[in-house]
């Protein structure tokens, strides 16, 4: 069966994952966690790859930096891709590099024509080195920066048109951004060209720990919220099914609990096979 709904893979779930028999199941890993030379971690991923389609999700390309991704990092990503033969590869519309340090979060920027050109150059560079298409994910936003010349949907559509990359629609990020910046999530989602979307992410969010703040945080540390499910159903009704990932990175529950959310997404998708 073609990939329907998948799970972010956790090493502690290896035995259960290898034994799982759910139709359409696939797994995604953060590519950086497997950029190692050998050992049990790579062996686990290789064993998983024997049974399931794998997606490599990057958290380190810093696509919105004015500088290109580092050659060493790209070479490691290429080596991993050749080992695993992923069915999807992705990273974020954000930046992380700053004066030699790596900021492990997805930082915002004014979506200007100049910024678009940097991202186009970087995505071109990544796709040329990898010889594979990249999917670019919409990030969670916490501040309405001044100076935008393009909406997020316009920016991503222009990026896809210029580079041939696809989009990874993170429905939770879109919901969190809409809540935090005060725009309408449904309208923003409807503005996305569905033909470009080749993967969907679903995750949980949390209220900001600061009591005076009304922001939501993209924590990946809670169950998927009902309004996010509703947005997801809305997209699938409009666009048809896409491989959909349940992301959970904090307060990770038992494998069966993650599989219940996975099965819920599978049920929403399974009226039609997902086209790879």
């Amino acid at each position: 069966m073609l990939p329907t709904a998948g799970l972010g893979f956790k090493l502690q779930h290896l035995d259960e994952a290898l034994a799982a028999k759910a139709p359409g199941l696939w797994f995604e890993v953060h590519a950086e966690n497997y950029m190692v030379e050998g050992g049990p971690r790579l062996a686990a991923l290789a064993a998983l790859r024997e049974r399931f389609p794998i997606s490599l999700h990057g958290v380190g390309l810093s696509l919105a930096s004015p500088e290109p991704p580092s050659d060493a990092h790209l070479a490691r990503l290429k080596t991993l891709a050749e080992r695993i033969e992923p069915f999807r590869m992705s990273d974020h519309l954000a930046w992380q590099k700053w004066e030699g340090t790596h900021h492990s979060d997805f930082l915002p920027f004014p979506r200007t024509a100049a910024a678009l050109q940097h991202v186009i150059d970087n995505v071109d560079r990544v796709q040329t080195v990898l010889g594979r298409p990249l999917l670019v994910e919409n990030p969670s936003l916490y501040i309405d920066l001044p100076g935008h010349e393009l909406s997020e949907a316009e920016f991503l559509a222009a990026l896809a048109k210029a580079t041939g990359c696809g989009l990874l629609l993170d429905v939770n990020n879109l919901f969190v951004s809409a809540h935090n910046l005060g725009f309408n999530a449904s309208a923003a989602m409807d503005a996305i060209n569905a033909d470009l979307v080749q993967e969907i992410h679903l995750a949980g969010h949390s209220p900001d720990g600061d009591s005076s703040s009304r922001l939501l945080i993209d924590s990946h540390g809670a169950d998927i919220a009902e309004p996010v499910w509703a947005l997801y159903r809305r997209f699938v009704e409009r666009a048809g099914p896409r491989p959909t990932l349940i992301e959970r990175d904090d307060d990770v529950p038992a494998f069966e609990a993650l599989m219940r959310e996975r099965d819920q997404a599978h049920d929403i998708l399974n009226r039609r096979h997902v086209l790879v």
Binding site: E32, N33, M35, V36, R41, G58, V59, G60, S62, H73, Q96, G100, T101, H102, H103, S104
Partner: peptide, 10 residues
């Protein structure tokens, strides 16, 4: 000594 590389496992 903040991270200088996205491979936080290292």
């Amino acid at each position: 000594r903040p991270p200088v590389d996205p491979r936080l496992c290292d």
